[in-house]
Design a protein around this nucleic acid. Structure first.
Lengths: 125, 125, 125, 125
DNA sequence: GTGGTCTAGACCACC
DNA sequence: GTGGTCTAGACCACA
């Protein structure tokens, strides 16, 4: 995984995990990879993964069973969707619209782009 | 001006200046406020404004005339628009679309929102 | 290190770092000294070193790994050489030649000087 | 005249005046332009020209006759040549040679460049 | 008046 | 440990 410099790595990992859950790569109430395994996969310091897991535990997206490992919370996926959707509608959309106006991008232009995007990405991976 | 603490103040100042230029609050090739004046206006240390101006000088958005002050570069506005538009189309849109799909927001829904947004914000300020 | 006061210290540090890279004192894609360490070595304030590193990061001579340190960019040396060589050929040489003519220094005279210089400085350090 | 940002304008004016004297644009012990006239010609603040003239007066390159104007010192040209030549030989040449070695520019290469330069600039203007 | 540089010292997030 | 940010305050050159 490639990391961006503008955001803390552990936050980027959190986002990445959200994506994995939303795309059902991690699903149900299965066990998630151990801190060490994920650290190896992502090529980062285990402390950094730990921090991401910490944050997810606080939000009850994952739950820890001592000595066994971390597991997806039962309603993890729906919780993420609800949160993100709210954030999307109340924070991101106004910003998006303002940008569109400042940059002169019309809603029609955007729709077209969306359609062509959708055709190239029928299923989300 | 209120500052968020997820991003460095000087970067927020830069963004704020971009906005001022895009909305023609600062325009043409006029002189921009002196470091000290802007620092007073924004209630920050002059060094912090200086750092923002430094970055803008690097991007040739503003140019310095020794002992006189800083001036908007001739094509400052178009330069900002071009950069932002490119970034918007190549980076933000794909992310947006992906999010819409993951969160189940349709393009029609978004269009409606946009229309109601536009009606409440007829002119950009 | 002794600093001249006709040029900002941080710029002299940048030049000094270029020299260290060109002479392979810093090489490969190794880690460069931490801001604090170099500040101690050069007897300046860490902020001053920081500013030099900032500039070098902008030019992608060094790259930062969060929480770890700064590293030489992979092609740092060749990048410096290319830039300097271009500047030398297009800017410095014409000035040099003009000066030689104005001051009545012949190319033969210069060659002689160069040869005697070379004999006294067989290896660059 | 175009000014570089790396050096104070008044110093660039001094250099420019040296050039005018060396190329005999200003010669003998004639009167040199008034501060105001030169300021208009160079499009700078008269104070800035004043500062350049001050420096030249200190070096006795020009002399002031109260109420009349500034005149070239009798041996202005030879004084400049001597100074520059010394500086050139003791300071610039070693730097040049070091650069040539670091950048891999040979003396033969430089000679060729010089010859082609000379052919295109038979008389100095 | 203008910007630019430097210091000292603090605090923070990150790995 | 690492870099990054910010402040306060000083001094300077320049126009």
């Amino acid at each position: 995984m490639e990391f961006n410099d503008k955001q803390a790595i552990y936050l980027q990992i959190v986002e990445n995990i959200y994506d994995r859950i939303l795309t059902d790569e991690w699903k149900g109430d299965e066990r998630v990879p151990s801190v060490r395994d994920l650290a190896v996969e992502l090529q980062v310091n285990p402390n950094t993964v730990m921090r991401a897991y910490d944050l997810l535990q606080n939000k009850e997206i994952i739950v820890n069973k001592r000595g066994v490992g971390n597991f997806l919370g039962s309603d993890a996926k729906s919780k993420i969707i609800t949160n993100r959707r709210n954030h999307f509608l109340t924070h991101e959309l106004p910003l998006l619209f303002r940008n569109m106006q400042l940059l002169g991008v019309s809603i029609e232009e955007l729709s077209e782009q969306f359609i062509s995007y959708s055709q190239n990405n029928i299923s989300i991976q």
